[in-house]
Every structure is written in C-alpha cells, then in structure tokens.
C-alpha cells in the first residue's frame, strides 16, 4: 500500500469536458425541438385542425355499425394476403441465407469483394420499403399476387440477411475449431460447426419476419399488388366507411393471430 495521508471525498463520474459536451448536446436537442415546432405550426392550416374533432366524429359515425355482410367477400383477399406473406418470407429467406454467409466475417469467401457486395445487397433491400418495392414490381411484372410476393421477398432479404449474418458472427469459435481439427472439409465445418449453432436464430428470425410480413402485405394492395389492401383501397375510394371498419378489424385480428403464432413458435425453438 502507498502512503497517502488524505483521501479525497470528491469523485465524479464524468470529466468536466464530457459534462460540458453533454450540456451542449441537451441544449442542441431543445433548440432543435423549438425550431421544428415553429416549422410545423407555420405550415398548418388551423382552420382544418380546429375542424378535426367534428370530422373525426363524422367519419367515426359512418364507420359504425360495421357492415358485417361484407366479411365473406374478404376471405379470398385475406387468404391471398397470407399467401403473399408466407411465400414472400420463404423466398426472402432462401435468398438471404447465401447473402448472410457471404456477409459474415468468419464465413465470407472473400473479404474484399463478396463481403461488401453482400452488405450492399442487405442495405439496398432494407432501405427500400415494401410498398415502394411493390410499386416498382407492379410496374415491371404487372399488378397481382406475384408482384406482392416478390416485393415481400426482396424486402425480407435485408432483414433476414442482417440478423442471420450477425448470428453467424456470434458463433462459438471453439466449436468450429474443434470440427476443423478433425480434418473436416470446408462444407463439413459449415454443416457441423456453424449450422447447428445458428439454427435457433434462423428459425426465430424467419418466424419474426413472417409476422412482420403479414402486416406489410395487408397494405400492398393499395398499389395494386394483391391481397386485402385492394379491398381497402376500393372501399376508401367509394367512401364505404362501414366496409373500411370491417377490413381494419379483420387486419387487426389477423395480425394479433400471427403475432401469437410467431411468439409461440419462437418460444418452442428456444
């Protein structure tokens, strides 16, 4: 032990410099908020805002009672929507798996070419919303289910690819080392050392993405990519508010159900 006569009673978590930066950060945040508020109020037509409660009440009044007799007509589009989500997820996952293996640092065949390419695919897929993918695809392959399925698949590549490649990078290197030490080939190291370790993540991610895709595919019809969104658009256009209610409730029920299924499946895996 060193000889110290007097121990300080003062200890601070952050250095004065760091504290100064923190204060400046908070100040900037408040300034930004004030500025945004001004911008927002400047472009608002207050006449419409003041009118809002009355309008909401009016539409609300037209929405009830829901026109339940419309329900049977919705079953086919709902089935289409579920198919878009499911087939789109399967397609997306199939395409995402090789991308993930190319993107993970520990499995990529080439750090300099393939890995940046895979990361680029992931970013592209993630940065474009399903609705925009669908818009593009409706223009390319025409309106209908196929455009919806492909849109969902393309959007899913990024999500599944990113989470899966992170799971691959987090695998336990010792298990892989042990398989390498037996004299196994590259493909065997993959199938014995890595695949078993990422299986729970793989199923978890896929089911989670399917659950998200159910929600996303309900609106794809708005741009003509099939499913229940088509009916929603038709009802909105004809101001058939009581039908809109039925559609929204049906979507709500479907999403709740898919979330329940996905939660149960993920629980069963882990």
């Amino acid at each position: 032990m060193t000889e110290i006569a007097h121990y300080s009673e003062v200890w601070r978590h952050r250095t004065p410099r760091k504290r100064l930066f923190m204060w400046m950060g908070w100040l900037a945040l408040v300034a930004l908020f004030v500025w945004c508020w001004q911008l927002m109020t400047e472009n608002t037509m207050w006449y419409f805002v003041l009118d809002a409660p009355r309008q909401a009440a009016d539409i609300g009044g037209r929405m009830v009672p829901p026109r339940w007799s419309y329900l049977p007509e919705l079953m086919q589009p709902l089935w289409d929507t579920i198919n878009i989500a499911t087939l789109g997820t399967i397609g997306g996952v199939i395409m995402a798996v090789p991308v993930a293996f190319m993107a993970a640092r520990n499995t990529t065949p080439s750090q300099t070419i393939l890995r940046p390419m895979a990361l680029f695919i992931i970013v592209t897929s993630r940065s474009i919303n399903s609705l925009i993918w669908a818009l593009l695809l409706v223009a390319i392959i025409g309106p209908g289910l196929l455009a919806g399925i492909v849109a969902i698949a393309l959007r899913s590549i990024g999500f599944v690819g990113k989470l899966l490649y992170e799971a691959i990078e987090e695998t336990d290197a010792r298990q892989i080392e042990a398989i390498e030490a037996t004299g196994a080939s590259g493909a065997q190291v993959l199938s014995y050392g890595i695949v078993p370790q990422i299986m729970p993540a793989f199923w978890g991610i896929s089911v989670f993405r399917w659950d998200i895709n159910i929600r996303e595919s309900t609106i794809l019809g708005l741009v003509g990519a099939g499913g229940i969104g088509l009916k929603l658009q038709a009802s909105l256009n004809t101001l058939a508010w009581s039908q809109v209610t039925v559609i929204l409730l049906l979507i709500l029920a479907t999403v709740v159900l898919s979330e329940w299924v996905s939660a149960r499946m993920r629980q069963a895996i882990i």
Binding site: D172, R174, Q175, E177, A178, I179, Y192, G193, P196, Q197, M199, P200
Partner: peptide
Amino acid sequence: FQEYALVERL
C-alpha cells in the same frame, strides 16, 4: 479441448 468444444446442439 479445455471447454470440451462439443457442438452443443448436436
């Protein structure tokens, strides 16, 4: 290996 390094899920 030290920590067995078995493939845990197999």
